[in-house]
Amino acid sequence: MLTAMLSDRHYMRDVGPERPFDLIKWLMAAFVALFLLQHVAEKWFQHLEHYSWFGLVADNALHVRKLWTLFTYNFLQNTAGYSGGVFTLICNLLGLYFCGLDLRDRLGQARLAWLYAGFIAAGAIAWCAVYPLGVDWPLFTPFASFTGLFVLFCCHRADEKMTFLVFFILPATMKPKYFCWCWVALDLFGFLFYEMGGRVSPLWNGHAANLAAALAAFACYRVSRRADFSGGFSNTDIELPRWLRRQKKSSTRPPAYKVNVANRGDLRAEVDRILDKINSEGFGALTDEERRLLDDARDLLSRR
């Protein structure tokens, strides 16, 4: 019985056969290939037409009807910077590898593909919306989709301590939600003090698009927590993640209770709850009573 309970948990199942199509690996390969093509076109042939054809400018997208730029801007990179676009490429590849692979295994490949496209669309809509503020320069960067993936990853792993390499050099260990706040704060700063005034930010391009993708990620996280995507939405109210709201400390301890181990239904439900707690908080978070119950369930299984 305990074996069946373990196999019910998605994180205890055996890994199936390798996927014939891996969205994250294909995206990483596409970004590298397009980056090399950009360098060849610009450095060898002095061609820059791809920025006007595939970069996002609100006037071109809406009036000239270059609607494809609402999507293709995500796959261009600015190769004129001090790093020749290498820094942007590395950031994007690392985001896809660490955040994308985790979200793919957690949400499924098809759902992640829709979310990724949604982050791109959210960034494009926001960039067109700020055009009246004087933001008339083109957008060609994958940072909007990167921000969406990163924020969604941080929502799912908000309180798990992780080590990040700041600027790929300095190791920093903290909870992902704090890294998320820092990233969003930088985008908010760039948007308020530069893009709202019609000026190019010295940090990076596309703060408005990044903020829109971050908001979309927050919304998707809350909806996915409250409803089953395959079975319809019973309650679509959008709330902030739990770690964004102040937690009220309870002065009362949960009442002690006993589980009837002779009742298989009660035992299964309680072991399921404990296994979920181990997955989300770790084995060290178990109480003595919960540890004892797992031992009893194991002994009961061995006797049968």
Rank of each mutant, 00 (worst) to 15 (best):
H50N: 05
H207S: 08
A208Y: 07
R264V: 13
W204H: 08
A209L: 07
R253D: 10
H39E: 01
L48G: 10
T79S: 07
W44P: 02
L107I: 12
R104L: 03
R291Y: 05
L36A: 13
F153A: 03
V223S: 12
M1Y: 08
L67I: 15
S250H: 14
G282T: 11
R157Q: 15
W243P: 02
D296E: 13
E289D: 15
F98H: 11
R264N: 15
L275Y: 09
V130Y: 11
W26M: 14
L133S: 13
F35Y: 12
R268E: 10
R264Y: 09
R253L: 11
L152K: 04
S250I: 06
L211M: 14
N263D: 15
G198L: 07
F87H: 10
N60L: 07
R65A: 02
P255R: 15
H156Y: 11
L165F: 09
S224F: 13
V166C: 02
E270V: 07
G232P: 03
N260A: 14
N279V: 07
A144W: 03
A117E: 04
G206M: 05
A61G: 08
N263V: 01
D276S: 06
L192P: 02
A117L: 13
A256M: 14
G190P: 05
A213R: 04
A219S: 14
W243Q: 00
Q109V: 01
W114Y: 15
A4V: 09
R199W: 08
V259S: 10
N210T: 06
